Computed example of a mutant assay.
Amino acid sequence: MKKLTLVVLASIVLSSCATHHGLTKNFNQHTTEVVLSHNNFKIVKIVKGEAEAKYVFGIGGLSKNGLIAQAKSDMLASANMEGNSRTIINETVEIKKSGLPFISKYKVIVSAQIIEFTN
């Protein structure tokens, strides 16, 4: 019985847990609408940004919203949208959590498509 308890305890402590969530929610509360019903645009590229944080006993890193903001900032820095008639569509936020029972790591990936209007 003592060996069984030690084996169960060791497996719990040494096991790694990982979860992944993909959110396709608009975190922006802008009032501008773009209707893409006509063929007056082209997809220029797909951009993404990443941010991650490690937590020990739940302490450390940024909050989930802070990680999303950092990843989005990284994405926008690589978008090269200034001086063009471009916008971001289909923004997706993915959150991956992995780690041991007392140490966890969050990784946030924000991706989107950049379109350019032709008319």
Rank of each mutant, 00 (worst) to 15 (best):
L36K: 07
K105W: 08
I95P: 04
R86Q: 07
K3H: 11
Y55A: 02
K42A: 09
V110W: 04
S111D: 00
K96L: 04
L23F: 14
E50I: 08
A112C: 10
L14M: 15
L9G: 11
A71I: 02
N28H: 12
G22E: 15
T92G: 04
L76I: 05
E33K: 09
T32Y: 12
I89T: 01
M75V: 03
V13P: 09
L76W: 06
L4E: 05
A79D: 05
R86M: 13
G83I: 04
K2A: 12
V35C: 10
L36V: 00
E91M: 04
E91R: 02
E82L: 09
N28P: 07
V93H: 10
S15D: 09
S98V: 02
H21Y: 13
N39V: 09
T32C: 10
M75S: 02
H20R: 14
A10G: 04
E82Y: 06
H20Y: 13
F57C: 13
V93M: 00
H38S: 11
I109K: 06
G83D: 00
L23K: 08
L9E: 00
A53L: 04
I46G: 08
G99R: 15
M75L: 02
A53P: 03
K96W: 03
I95C: 09
G61Y: 07
H38E: 10
N65D: 05
T19W: 11
E91K: 08
S37C: 00
